[in-house]
Design a protein around this nucleic acid. Structure first.
Lengths: 215, 215
DNA sequence: CGTTTTCGTCAACACCTGTACACACAATTT
DNA sequence: AAATTGTGTGTACAGGTGTTGACGAAAACG
C-alpha cells in the first residue's frame, strides 16, 4: 500500500465532474457573486478538480453559463406547461397558481438567483437568451388569455400588453422573494399575499378594458 | 525647455480627478460590464491617472459605487419631486408623466444602467441601498394616491400594494428601455405606448378595487 | 487480451489585480 | 517666505487569472 505508481492521477469520476462544475458554479452564485464575476479557477477549485480539467467539459465559462441557463429554463418550462394544461384562467385558480409557482421558486432558489442576476448584469448573449425565454412565457400567457371568452373582444396587441403586465410583476415579485432569507416564511407569505392582490387588481382592469377594434 | 526638473509629476487637476474617476466608471458600465466587475486599475486608466491616485479620492471601489449611487438617485429624486408637485393623479396626465419620466431615463442612460445592473447583481450593501430608494418612491406614490378622492375607501395596505404594482412595472419597462439602442426611437415609442396602456389598465383595476374595511 | 479514447493532473507562461511606499510638485496656510 | 497639506507619479510585490502542453491512468471498445 506504500507504493502506488504516482499516487496523484487517480480520479476517474466518470461523467460526474461536469455536474460537479455546474453545481459548484451555482453554489458560488448563491453564496458569493453573480455568475459573471466567477472565475474559472474558483469554480474548479470548489468542484474539487484542477483548473485545466475544466476544458474537458466546457470551452470556457460562458459556455458553462449557457448550459446552466438551459438547465434553469428547461425545468421551469416543464412546470409552466403543467400549470397551463389545467382549466382556463379565472379568478379562483389565481391563488393556487401563485402558490405552485412561488413554491417552485423556493425549491429552485439557486437557479432563479442565477437567472435573476444575469438578467441585467450578464453578457449580452446571456441577457438576450433570458429575455427571449421570458418573452416566450409572455406569448404563451397571451395565447391562454385569448381562449378566455371573457376576452374575446380584446385584440392581439392588447393581449400581449396584458400578459406583459402580469409577467413584469411576477418577475419583480420573484426577485423580491429571492432577497428574503430562505427561512423567512412570514416575509414569503407576505409577498405571496401582495402578489395575489396585485394580480387580482390586474384581473379587474382586464375586465374593464376596451380595445379599439381597428388597431 | 529641455530640462524641467523631473518632467513627469506635473498634473495638478485640482478636484477634477474625482469627477474623472466617476465618469470613467460610469462610461465603463455603459460600454463594458456591470460596475461590480470593474477593476480599480481600468477605471484609473480610463480616467487618465495612475492606479494609486485612486486612493486620494476613494478608499476602495465600493466607495466609488456608493457615491455613484447617491449621485444617481439625488437627481432622480429631484425630478420626481417636481412631477409630484403637479396636480393630483388622473388618467389625463398619465401620458405626460410617462413621457417626462422616460425622457429623463434617456437623458441619464448611464446612471440608470448602473443602477439597473447593480439592483440584482451588486453587493448586498449596494442592493439594499437601491431597494431602499425604490421603496421610498413606492411610499411617496402611495401617499399621493391617498389624497385622491377616488381612493378614499382604500386602506393603507392596499394603497401600498397598488403603488408597488405601478413601481414594479415602471422598473421593468425602464430596464426594457435600457436594452434598446439609444437611437431606436421606434422601439422607445413602442415601450412608451405599452407603458401607457398598462398603467391605464391598472388605473381601471384600481377603480374597481374594494378594500376589506377591517383589514 | 490489446488499443483507443476519455479525462484528471502537473508545470509553466504571460498578464492583470489591489495595495504599500517613498517621492515631487502644487496649492494653501501660517 | 516658510511650512504644511493635497494630489499625482513610479516602483514593487504577492497573489489571482486564463490557457497551453505533455503525461498518465482509467474506461470503453475491438
Amino acid at each position: 500500500m506504500s507504493k502506488e505508481s504516482t499516487s496523484r492521477t487517480r480520479k476517474p469520476k466518470r461523467g460526474q465532474t461536469r455536474e460537479a462544475l455546474m453545481a459548484a458554479a451555482l453554489d458560488l452564485v448563491v453564496k458569493k457573486a453573480p455568475f459573471s464575476a466567477l472565475s474559472l479557477r474558483e469554480v474548479t477549485k470548489k468542484a474539487g478538480v484542477v483548473p485545466t480539467a475544466f476544458y474537458r467539459h466546457f470551452p470556457d465559462m460562458s459556455a458553462l453559463g449557457l448550459t446552466l441557463l438551459d438547465e434553469s429554463f428547461r425545468t421551469l418550462r416543464h412546470m409552466m406547461r403543467q400549470v397551463r394544461q389545467e382549466e382556463l384562467p379565472n379568478e379562483r385558480m389565481l391563488r393556487g397558481s401563485l402558490e405552485v409557482y412561488f413554491n417552485y421558486v423556493r425549491n429552485n432558489r439557486a437557479h432563479f438567483l442565477f437567472v435573476s442576476k444575469e438578467l441585467a448584469g450578464g453578457t449580452p448573449t446571456m441577457r438576450n437568451a433570458i429575455r427571449r425565454e421570458i418573452r416566450m412565457f409572455t406569448n404563451e400567457l397571451a395565447m391562454d388569455m385569448a381562449r378566455f371568452p371573457f376576452l374575446n373582444h380584446v385584440n392581439a396587441e392588447d393581449l400581449q400588453m396584458m400578459a406583459g403586465l402580469v409577467v413584469n410583476n411576477v418577475t419583480a415579485l420573484t426577485q423580491e422573494m429571492l432577497e428574503l432569507e430562505e427561512d423567512d416564511e412570514f416575509g414569503q407569505n407576505q409577498v405571496l399575499g401582495t402578489a395575489e392582490k396585485q394580480l387580482r387588481l390586474i384581473y379587474f382592469g382586464v375586465g374593464m378594458w376596451k380595445s379599439k377594434p381597428d388597431q
